[in-house]
Design a protein around this nucleic acid. Structure first.
Lengths: 121, 121
DNA sequence: TGACTATATTCCTATTTGGGAATATAGATT
DNA sequence: AATCTATATTCCCAAATAGGAATATAGTCA
């Protein structure tokens, strides 16, 4: 994963919010739709952009595609994800995203079992 | 200086090399031409891109435009410049840029007085 | 099978980006 | 004034990006 590619992935607000959320938990497309308040096509396209550049991985689970950060991460990616956490501390939008994520998890179940049922999450 | 804008500035290789060099020393356009081996128009345009986004400042000194990182830097910019230094440690191109910069400084004079003369640097 | 759900893709458009050739500009030097 | 030097800008063009509307696909469920 080369450095430029990381910055290219980071340089759009929607993608940055997605990555910031994925640093907390694997999520499916509809989670992003809910949390970001963006239309499906937009979310889906940014995820596919990130995926094509190796920035996220995806696995299907029944009807849902579960997106995660890759297990093996380069030093550069680690460093930049950490830096992002730092930078985002005082930003209200990113904070709101995290609050919404927390609420979602409350509403359904534990992160680990989020995808264990085929009901609308 | 907002976060997205930082990543937009960082997401081109030439700009990244420029910023990496500027983290060491203020430089003029012909320095960049020499070190990066890129044509004047390319260097100049990327500098003007960076400048228009507040990522660098420029002052004229006789015939030369001296580019620097801004004196006052946001937490985000500081963090990302630091992260960049980290990430770039093992990259041969960035290392080579620094060696060329060192050689340039040897050839002319101290950083502080680099621009004190109107001879070709 | 047929309907439903979650997601991806295609087609379209507008905007931005990156780069080169040529030209313009501003200050220095003669 | 004429020239030179360093730099910026303009005019191109090709490619990438971002986004929406509409449609396709894959899995699920009745």
């Amino acid at each position: 994963m080369d450095l430029i590619r990381i910055y290219q992935c980071f340089c759009d607000r929607t993608r940055l919010r997605i990555l910031h959320l994925l640093a907390r938990s694997p999520l499916c497309v509809c989670h992003f739709q809910d949390i970001l308040g963006e239309p499906q096509v937009k979310v889906s396209k940014h995820l596919s952009y990130l995926r094509s550049r190796g920035m996220v991985t995806a696995t299907r689970h029944q009807n849902w595609m579960i997106y995660s950060l890759p297990n093996k991460r380069s030093r550069e990616l680690e460093a930049n994800l950490k830096c992002l956490q730092d930078c985002v501390q005082s930003d209200s939008m990113f904070a709101r995203d995290l609050r919404k994520l927390a609420r979602l998890c409350q509403n359904c179940c534990e992160p680990a079992s989020v995808f264990a049922t085929n009901k609308r999450l």
